[in-house]
Nucleic acid binder design. Structure first.
Length: 756
DNA sequence: GCCGCCAGTATTTTT
DNA sequence: TACTGGCGGC
């Protein structure tokens, strides 16, 4: 039974209990992925379950990827038949088999948030008598909420139609769904909803999938919403071998429709459920865990539990206060430098914050110090304009029913087909009940489309038809290259904006490389399959390993990750917990913020630092904030907060770090935080590309050294340049450091100085 | 049809 | 502060 060696009793229990409903309450860092993967292997090896009868569902591609790899390693032969996928890709795969059952054809496309917004805008523009303040984003939010609760447009109107505003939302919702169907497209929510619909309305299909998935495991169960719950329930209702894993304390996606009650009341839904609690934490030190426990126990809506570890006490959790956010960020960066100087790898560090805007200040300091970092979040590669443009071309070529994509590129790059013409075409399309692209093909019959416009439209459709005719024999990267060539993208984009052109073209190049890679990795490549994979990608999936770098991300993005050394910045009442949760009459909003804090604390393995800034620039104006209440919830004996506060009363518990702290032993003393200096804006800089790990903020820095030269680095001291390789964005420099050995770094980031 | 200016707005976001 | 979207002038 070598599978079970190394597991603790509880974990073993969870693995061995294979039949019937099982709830695994897995605290942070308690080895749940290991349990899930071992469980799959155990089912196959010891219980003779066929690999294809096992399904493991996760939320992120990343989690699915990790699980896949570990299952492959444990199971060996046949492991690829185990179904490991995200909710959304599971739905796509199920829907692709029989899309006609829910009114779609095999080429259906998946709309991302941007596409959905465009569509909703079209819908609203086509409506009369809309209320003021009727913006696509707001309407879409309401619609998404309704969808997550499985409420149809009609039900929505029945429930809330008495109010004029909500009546309009219901109408927009209805029209939006109709348009999606006409465009043969589904938004993210629809993937789940249509999947549930497919299973509910087609007993034969349901039966088929139930037979296929006899053992179902769901990861991060606390984040499931009503639709996901329904989908899992349907699939599991025949064999009832449903094993869910989660931690109610880590439920942080309520705003996306996640319902914590799904995990809290699992035993009510399945009254014969077997419950296993995993409470031994393998990640953090005792001080860190005690801190996490102290904070989370203030929540009412949770299952009581107590995480423990045998890792030892460790260091106390540090808390530092500053007068402004610049000092706060400066401290964090100096501290990282200090620790890195003592031998820590930059990969050991993560800086976590509540809102994305907070990254800027830290980025400034990192850039200034020449420390590589990677920002998770922001604009993802696949949402960049130029990438979406090319993808829209591909989608148009692929299906011709995706009006949003076709409309997007009709005049991109500019070819003189403006709003007026576009309006006439969509009007005609609506009149005839045909698609936008088909209306373009019939442009000559459209009244009001003049000779010049007609010529341009025909040139456009001519190109699309040509590309389409090449589809059968050409690879998709070749098609893409052909498109870029035919539309003269290079010149057009350079004419538009000299400055961004280089970046844009690089991104387009990268997209084509990704296609080539996709063609190499997959046996059966079609344009549709590529577009499908891409539509379900997120910025978290673009995180590449490589040059050691500090990670910057929101607390939300950090869930599921761990780091030896974690900084949580911005512990200000009003920022974290946020203003809305403070003002909310619903205590569950504050509880969600607290869970977020819990998630943040439990990311840390050995070292955790919390910081607070008394003043902060928010939305362009200065605000003063008290210390976060979450800090107050940590008992004094767990905190290293160095002295007492010089702030008058309130919650501050300490004197500013600079006065008593030895942390700044190698930097000039700075003024006390209490005497907050007036803010001086940081010097201008260009932010790093979020998706390009460790690449430089500005590649333009002058390089005055060459292989063989002696150079000096901020962290590693002096060394000799061994090699310099120019890369797409920056030059990779290899240096043999006298003290720290050989390192590879990007020139723009490393800020090497010539030493002689 | 295109470009530029002004006004409005601003958490978190697995897919 | 920083970005986006709408509208008016050319």
């Amino acid at each position: 039974m070598d599978l079970l060696t190394g597991l603790n009793d509880r974990q073993r229990d969870a693995v061995l209990h294979t039949e019937g409903p099982v709830l695994i309450l897995a605290g942070a860092g308690s080895g749940k992925t290991r349990v899930l993967t071992t469980r799959a292997a155990y089912l196959i090896r010891e219980k003779n379950v066929k690999p294809w009868n096992i399904m493991a569902i996760t939320f992120t591609n990343k989690a699915a990827g990790e699980m896949r790899e570990r299952v492959n390693n444990l199971v060996g032969m046949g492991s690829e038949a185990v179904w490991v996928a995200t909710f959304h890709s599971t739905c796509v795969r199920m829907l692709r088999r029989t899309p006609e059952r829910v009114g779609f054809d095999h080429h259906f496309t998946v709309y991302d948030t941007d596409d959905s917004k465009r569509l909703m805008k079209q819908v609203i523009d086509g409506m009369k008598n809309v209320p003021g303040n009727f913006r696509p984003k707001n309407v879409l939010n309401a619609v998404s909420k309704a969808k997550n609760d499985l409420i149809s447009p009609d039900e929505f109107e029945d429930e809330r139609g008495y109010d004029l505003y909500w009546k309009s939302v219901a109408e927009a919702y209805r029209r939006y769904q109709k348009k999606l169907l006409e465009n043969n497209a589904m938004d993210f929510d629809d993937l789940l909803i249509n999947c549930v619909k497919l299973l509910r309305e087609n007993p034969d299909v349901l039966e088929n999938w139930q037979e296929r998935f006899r053992y179902i495991m769901v990861d991060e169960y606390q984040d499931t919403n009503a639709v996901q719950f329904e989908m899992v329930s349907l699939l599991a209702s025949k064999y009832r071998n449903l094993c869910v894993v989660g931690d109610d304390d880590q439920s942080i996606y309520k705003f996306r429709g996640a319902d914590i009650k799904n995990i809290l009341s699992f035993e009510n839904t399945y009254n014969d459920a077997y419950v296993v609690r995993l409470e031994q934490n393998y990640r953090s030190t005792q001080y860190i865990l005690d801190t996490a426990n102290a904070v989370i126990k203030n929540n009412y809506e949770r299952r009581d539990k107590n995480l423990w570890t045998d890792k030892g006490q460790g260091e106390k959790v540090r808390f530092r206060e500053f007068g402004n956010s610049r000092e706060e960020a400066g401290f964090v960066v100096e501290d990282i430098i200090r620790k890195a100087g003592k031998g820590a790898s930059l990969d050991d560090f993560a800086v976590l914050y509540r809102t994305n805007a907070q990254s800027r200040m830290v980025e400034d300091h990192l850039v200034e110090e020449g420390i590589p970092y990677n920002l998770v979040g922001g604009v993802s590669f696949y949402s960049r304009r130029e990438v979406k443009d090319i993808l829209a071309y591909l989608r148009t070529v692929d299906s011709g029913r995706d009006d949003i994509s076709t409309a997007r590129i009709l005049n991109v790059p500019k070819r003189g087909i403006g709003k007026t013409t576009e309006g006439r075409i969509s009007e005609y399309a609506a009149e005839k009940g045909i698609g936008f692209y088909d209306a373009l093909l019939a442009a000559k019959d459209i009244p009001g489309v003049s000779g010049a416009a007609l010529k341009k439209i025909e040139a456009f459709t001519g190109m699309v038809e040509k590309w389409r005719s090449h589809l059968p024999e050409m690879g998709l990267s070749d098609i893409a290259a052909m498109i870029v060539e035919d539309i003269d993208y290079r010149n057009k984009i350079e004419a538009e904006s000299e400055e961004e052109a280089r970046d844009r073209l690089e991104n387009v190049g990268e997209l084509i490389s990704k296609m080539e890679a996709f063609e190499e990795e997959n046996e059966e490549v079609s344009l549709s399959s590529f577009l499908e994979e891409v539509s379900l990608m997120t910025n978290l999936d673009e995180l590449e390993e490589g040059t050691p770098r500090v990670l910057l991300m929101t607390l939300h993005s950090a869930k599921g990750l761990e780091f030896p050394c974690v900084y949580i910045i911005g512990l200000d009442d009003g920022l974290f917990p946020g203003q809305q949760s403070l003002a909310s009459p619903d205590s569950s909003d504050m509880e969600e913020e607290r869970r977020l804090m819990y998630v943040g604390i439990t990311r840390a393995m050995d070292s955790l630092t919390l910081t607070h800034s008394a003043t902060r620039l928010v939305n362009g104006e200065y605000n003063a904030f008290p210390v976060s209440r979450f800090v107050d919830e940590i008992p004094d004996e767990l905190l290293d907060s160095t002295g007492e506060s010089i702030f008058a009363g309130h919650r501050s518990r300490l004197r500013p770090a600079a006065i008593t702290d030895d942390i700044f032993d190698d930097v000039p003393a700075r003024p006390a935080a209490g005497s907050a200096k007036p803010y001086s804006p940081a010097k201008p800089y260009s932010p790093a590309k979020p998706y390009s790990a460790g690449k430089p903020a500005s590649a333009s820095g002058s390089i005055d050294y060459k292989p063989g030269d002696r150079v000096r680095h901020r962290l590693f001291g002096e060394g000799t340049v061994v090699e310099m390789v120019p890369g797409p964005r920056d030059t990779k420099v290899t240096v043999d450091f006298d003290g720290s050995g050989r390192k590879v770094m990007y020139a723009g980031f490393a800020k090497l100085e010539k030493a002689d």
